[in-house]
């Protein structure tokens, strides 16, 4: 609990700066309107007007909060205007992409650990794959998956999410599977253990700390991938689509609310992964 004061202080500072920014950025519109009506702008009028415009350049925290509140709690979760609905669409794809990314990452890491040929051939491509901007690649993946006859928009979105999330898992797992020292490997050798036994009883458990560290990066990457996947693909649902529509139709509050909903979702996902990690390390006898 003693950590709550610094956290609150930072939060208050951010909110204060945000309000100042809103006044500053939205002032032009207020002055413009007043000039047309031939009125003078008093300071109190400036404050109240900049903070409550219908289409502000920068919406204020309470406006975003109101939109979030409306989007999350007021509308039925099945409504196309509910943020819970859109959040669920994004979450579903994120999780699919995450699982796919883990499978790809771990699978490739195992192959690389046991095969020199795989190490030489796969690793450079994996690195190159991450240098291509995902926004350039996303529309192609959508077109290609449509071309091979997959109509479900969730498929290309999950592929994009997996494309971003497999890499941290791959890199960490290669390191983790090779983390046992000479002595631990020799010990297995003195037992004449098979490769499979060494893998299950030594390499895999030894890699767990590396695995969970990578999961936190991977789940965030998967969410980003999903949202990016929703932007250029003509998706009509999902938080990414909500942001795009908000920006295209001049609905800044809607855009910001979707952005914050995505941030909340990311926070929840990372907390879930951390809880999973805590559970597993407890089973594996970590120091309390």
């Amino acid at each position: 609990m003693k950590n709550i004061f610094p956290v609150l202080t930072v939060l208050l500072a951010i909110v204060a700066i945000w309000y100042l920014g809103a006044v500053w950025m939205n002032a032009a519109w207020t002055y413009d309107q007043a000039a047309r009506a031939g009125e003078n702008v008093s300071f109190s009028h400036l404050l109240s007007d900049t903070m409550n415009q219908k289409r502000p350049v920068l919406p204020t925290p309470h406006q975003v909060w109101a939109e979030l509140d409306k989007g999350i709690f007021d509308r039925k979760v099945t409504s196309k205007r509910s943020l819970v609905y859109h959040g669920w669409i994004t979450l579903e794809t994120t999780l699919w992409g995450f699982v796919l990314g883990i499978l790809m990452g771990v699978g490739l890491a195992v192959a690389i650990t046991y095969s020199r040929v795989m190490e030489l051939s796969v690793m450079p491509w994996a690195i190159i794959s991450q240098t291509i901007p995902i926004v350039a690649l996303a529309p192609m993946i959508v077109v290609l998956s449509n071309q091979i006859g997959v109509q479900d928009i969730r498929f290309p979105k999950a592929m994009i999410a997996a494309y971003l999330s497999f890499f941290p898992v791959l890199v960490s797992m290669v390191k983790g599977l090779n983390s046992p020292d000479h002595m631990q490997v020799d010990l297995m050798h003195t037992y004449s253990a098979t490769d499979a036994q060494s893998f299950w009883k030594l390499r895999l458990p030894a890699s767990m700390p590396y695995f969970f560290a990578s999961l936190k990066v991977a789940i965030a990457a998967s969410l980003v991938g999903t949202i990016v996947g929703e932007l250029p693909t003509g998706a009509t649902s999902g938080l990414g689509a909500r942001m795009l529509i908000g920006s295209q139709f001049g609905q800044p509050m809607q855009m910001w609310a979707a952005l914050f909903a995505a941030a909340i979702l990311a926070g929840l996902l990372i907390i879930s992964v951390a809880a999973l990690e805590k559970g597993v390390t407890r089973i594996m006898g970590a120091q309390a």
């Binding site: 002595m183 631990q184 020799d186 010990l187 030594l202 767990m208 594996m284």
Partner: peptide, 20 residues
């Protein structure tokens, strides 16, 4: 070695930390 003729004790205990 394959007939498991010996037990080997290393310089460090080298116990697996995830096992009791």
């Amino acid at each position: 070695r394959r007939s498991r003729a010996y037990g080997y004790v290393f310089q460090a205990a080298g116990l697996y930390p995830w096992r009791t």
